[in-house]
Amino acid sequence: MPLSEAALAECHELIARYPTAKCALLQILWVAQREYGSINQDVMREVAELLRIRPVEVADVVSFYFMYRKQPMGTYTISVCDTLSCALLGAFNLIDYLEGKLGIKCGQTTPDGRISLEAAECLGACSDAPVLTVDFYHQLKVTPEKIDELLARMERGEEIGQEMRPPEWWETPTGWPTTPMPDGQNPNPQPNQPTQVPK
């Protein structure tokens, strides 16, 4: 089954953005994955034809980047960050909890094809650890209760978007620090306030 007209038009628009057609490969693969769900050998051949490159060049790239899925994934993909900042605050307990709840191990999909579970390397939300992503939308400061709630929403087939951090979590400080510097200097030097404020 070839790519739809709309998807092909999108691909050609992507190719036009780059100096060579091959440069667009990673972006075309994103389109293909969105259309087909995963990337198998037939999809690789089709992408290769579209870009006029050899299929092996496509396979080379697909095998390198883990986000190009070689097998079909569940309706929802849960990726739990297991790198240090999250691990310090209990990421592995969350993985154990999820594995117990879903009855699968990391890297597997539930038999009904609903949820895939994986452990991921640092997801870039270390200050809101522990984190997991649902289809790569971040969920912050995750607890077992929050997981229960997310699973219930998946049960109802809801769309799960990104959770945004409320401002009060960090309380961006209004001033500079107050603890004295080691050499007794003023910790809060008043800088020469820039005079040229744009009009």
Binding site: S85, W169, W170, E171, M181, P189, P191
Partner: peptide, 19 residues
């Protein structure tokens, strides 16, 4: 970017003179 065992992990902007 502050993370780990601290009360308010977060991303804090400060001049390079901070300790």
């Amino acid at each position: 970017c502050m993370s780990g065992h601290i009360k308010k992990p977060g991303v804090y902007e400060a001049p390079f003179t901070v300790t």
